[in-house]
Design a protein around this nucleic acid. Structure first.
Lengths: 351, 351
DNA sequence: CTACATATGCTCCAATAGAGCATATGTAGG
DNA sequence: CCTACATATGCTCTATTGGAGCATATGTAG
């Protein structure tokens, strides 16, 4: 890459900061962290693989598998990620895709006025939890423990009305006097859209937007840690999900949002399934990810109609009722038109 | 970010390479390049903003606006990008979104065995070309000059059958003897799916996949430059679009694919339009991006029905026919349900 | 053998979207 | 002024999709 333009960067002469346990003299070089949100579904519960920093201490923060990108060793970013995951969990990653690259200042437990010098690249990996792919370290934890307001499987989570809604509305009001920032959407509207308040529809894909909103409002523990919540009056700040180290919860939010979106238009559910499964098990897995219950007959029709699966010829008998046919993923769909996902149209939203 | 794991990186002691016109002693630090694919539509032609490296020299390679991320100056990645764009083109960027982070070795005109030490983050920006947002440098160039095989506005580009298809089939055959690489899709299938051969449907969103396939097959000038095409027998290699510096063409491919995908489910077309426009102008803009012609009446019905636009009350008379009503974007849709794009269902592909 | 639970097939219907016809209202040229 | 023409715009007809529910099949448990 030609960098003849570097000179315009006007690098400041101030001393560099110690990052990644090393000294860094070049103002244009940064460390890159590779972070993996490894998702599976275990007993109808969507889970993510956690590597506890210190499993014994009580106040230990949850951590995703991660490590620095080392251009000497890693030929590609994804290769580096796989190496770190292998190293830290023993897991041999299957499906993986890049999510996003974050570099905001002060999102890493450092003083906010410090240059980050570190950039986080988040990855989403999907795997089958029940099968042993070499996993030796790490624990599976429900992703709803980190995002309780995302769990709509039973019904609307009470935490929204009880804790989130009133505090966000307060936060939105405090900004009204600042005059309407033309161009950007007003706080109150963002709150309404993100959390589906006042008649707005809940969009299960907006996981990151919701997290960022809560962070911005200082309602997230990480925001306090990062010095974003200027010691507000709400010392009664509620516990909104388990915190994570660094910006890992933000990465996980991105991963959940992407999983929910992608499952609808690409056949990625099957990364979460065993080689053979019943259609009901498949449906339960989708529902674990997306939340709302689906119409069973229509789900079957859609999945079969799209040619996503083929019967193995065998049945699973211990279902408590009529035996269910076993299916397997029809890999040939990948060779056909824009291979679809399990399309689930939104509920008949009257709008 | 906690980097207690850095020690496992087993940094090799070999001398570091000179990258980005500077020395870099730390094996874990890399330079980050911010690259902008700035897209507009000018006279029904989708264009991208190019900053010629050397406008006068004949063999000059096209370059996207780009510059290194400087954590001292740039609070965020996107902020850094905007600063570089402003600096190099005078343009004040409006809509921008991150695309992808690339770090493959040897994609930067360097020897392939050299560590990259530089990571490229690509961004997509949409703007209105006809309006002056401060643009002082750079030229608009049709994106189809870089990707002639993507131009389906008239009909199927001849370059596919004439140049691409035979060479890719040859390339696919050469790999058959290697035994079928289990797990990955066979070359022949990839070729078929990517380019819609042998009855497969053309997916206008697979821009990056197609480019990568051509690169892999050594049919792209950048692949030769990067030393990927081992001086094959085809010294008769055809000119498949204009080359670009570094990995900029790959970034542009990502940008085109994303634009085509996003225009269908988010109201981003309007970033490309003037404040007021006729529905026909809007349709022409969408067609410039997506290619196939749309049914005029249905397009109107969909756009109006989705509440994306509102009439200004005025008409544009110099249309050569009945005057067209002028419309403007109804920004309120952003406050409604998952604000839709201009849904255009695929042609009645019999499948 | 019966009650029950789940699987599975099929029908009905509302909403969506593709396609085309008909009409409105300008410009251009005699 | 009048006519040919071009584009805009409204409306209808119809095929397809997807939401919802009924009916039947085939197991297990007591």
């Amino acid at each position: 890459m030609n960098m003849e333009l570097s000179g315009r960067g006007k690098p400041s002469p101030e001393k560099s900061h110690r990052v990644m346990a090393r000294d860094n003299a070049d103002p244009l070089s940064v460390g890159i962290g590779l972070n993996a949100a490894i998702v599976a579904v275990l007993d109808n519960e969507p889970v993510v693989l956690i590597v506890r920093k210190d499993p014994d201490s009580a106040g230990a923060t949850d951590v995703l598998p991660f490590g620095p990108f080392n251009p000497r060793e890693h030929r590609t970013l994804e290769g580096g990620l796989r190496a770190w995951v292998q190293d830290q969990t023993g897991l041999d990653l299957g499906y993986a895709e890049q999510l996003y690259t974050f570099a905001d200042r002060g999102r890493h437990s450092e003083p906010a006025d410090t240059s980050p010098h570190v950039v986080s690249i988040g990855y989403l990996a999907l795997t089958e939890a029940s099968r042993d792919h070499g996993l030796t370290h790490g624990i599976w934890r429900s992703w709803y423990q980190f995002f309780p307001w995302e769990d709509w499987r039973r019904s609307r989570p009470e935490i929204i009305s009880a804790e989130i809604e009133p505090r966000l509305k307060l936060w939105a009001e405090r900004a009204v006097t600042n005059g309407s920032q033309s161009g950007s959407i007003a706080r109150a509207d963002r709150v309404r859209i993100c959390f589906g308040l006042d008649g707005a529809a809940w969009d299960e894909e907006k996981v990151l937007e919701r997290y960022e909103l809560l962070y911005e409002a200082g309602l997230i523990e990480e925001a306090v840690r990062d010095g974003r919540s200027a010691a507000q009056s709400w010392t009664d700040r509620p516990k909104l999900g388990l915190p994570m180290q660094s910006d890992h919860r933000r990465i996980l939010a991105t991963a959940i949002g992407r999983t929910r979106a992608k499952i609808k238009y690409r056949p990625v559910v099957f990364e979460l399934m065993p080689p053979e499964f019943t259609l009901y098990e498949l449906q339960k897995t989708v529902e674990a990810i997306l939340g709302p219950h689906l119409h069973k007959q229509n789900f079957r029709r859609l999945v079969e109609g799209a040619g996503l699966v083929e019967a193995t010829g065998e049945v699973k008998t211990r279902t408590g009722g009529r035996p269910a046919k076993l299916f397997r993923f029809r890999k040939e769909v990948l060779l056909e038109r824009p291979a679809p996902g399990v399309r689930v149209s939104a509920p008949p939203s009257r709008n």
